[in-house]
Design a protein around this nucleic acid. Sequence first.
DNA 1: GTCTATACCTGGATAGAC
DNA 2: GTCTATCCAGGTATAGAC
Lengths: 192, 192
Amino acid sequence: MVQKSETRKEEIVRTAEMLFKKKGYSAVTMRDIAQAMGIKAASLYNHIQSKQQILSDIIIQIGEQFTEGMAEIVATEETTSIEKLEQIIKLHVKITMNNPSRMATMNNDWMHLEKQKDYYLSLRRNYEDSFRQILKQGIEKGELKTVNPEIILFSILSTLRSLYLWIPKKEEIIKENLLGKLSQVLLTGVVV
Amino acid sequence: MVQKSETRKEEIVRTAEMLFKKKGYSAVTMRDIAQAMGIKAASLYNHIQSKQQILSDIIIQIGEQFTEGMAEIVATEETTSIEKLEQIIKLHVKITMNNPSRMATMNNDWMHLEKQKDYYLSLRRNYEDSFRQILKQGIEKGELKTVNPEIILFSILSTLRSLYLWIPKKEEIIKENLLGKLSQVLLTGVVV
DNA sequence: GTCTATACCTGGATAGAC
DNA sequence: GTCTATCCAGGTATAGAC
């Protein structure tokens, strides 16, 4: 399979997302992006339509990856709710390792979406609803503790959504089975 | 005890932090803050020196609350590491319930601090180091599982730092013992 | 595909009247 | 304490030459 080389547009988006991660969408200027690429701001507009389009491309692409991943997890038959939770953790670790800057941008700058904000929010709502369903089934089947599912959802999802802050800094841990350890801590706790 | 009425400066900071929570520091203008108070932007400058000073006031005040709280927890004698972790969770819940918007601003906009950024980062580093020490002692004493403390730190702190997103929306849960349930989920997990 | 030049707007902040 | 008026820096984006 031939590795298609990066287009100029992809390079712009990749540069932008690194800057967005560091300072946030609103604090990054088109001049910043251009300077980081060694060109002038006006030149960017030969490849992209607007700053807003860069943001939208980043967020929607990641959002749809989560939607697809969750659909597969939900569709898997004959798995316990615990196995499904492990699959969710795996999905977050995988996507975050491949796109830490995009994850940061999605988490922190979705509110600056204009035309695509409602679409993004619908993706997120559906994702969380699927997550809730898995938790409720786990509690019903006696696989999970009888705790308010909102608290479990909040707790696990907060940790998974923050992975982007942490994965780039902890290379050693990642090599030695991050996935297994994180699943252990999130699912079975830390107390002996 | 007489309740001191809110000064104009406090009103500005309170208004600003609500807007910062919603859109982030960089996307909020002095005109936005003024409009929310029913005055003109120029009038703000009779009470504050700059937009940056508002940000700095918000973040440093919360940062120092955490520093003081952690110092008390560390100084408490004859408590297990698990009790110390419960105290940390309690500290976060308490501060977040009292200042959800300030928590959002501290978490999301600290990188826009100018002169005070290094000071804030030192507060945060010391806080995390104290947290690590508690985890290490817990593992040594056999109270906590032998898991890499960085993973535990990351997991618990991610959840606690996201509380501001969630506490204002879940009033019912808070009334029925949020603290106990959150401690249970974070410390002993969700699997039966 | 990138440049210079520029239009147009909005940002933070100040001066001075009331 | 708030206003109007204003300064000036810097923002997104376009036009047109190379």
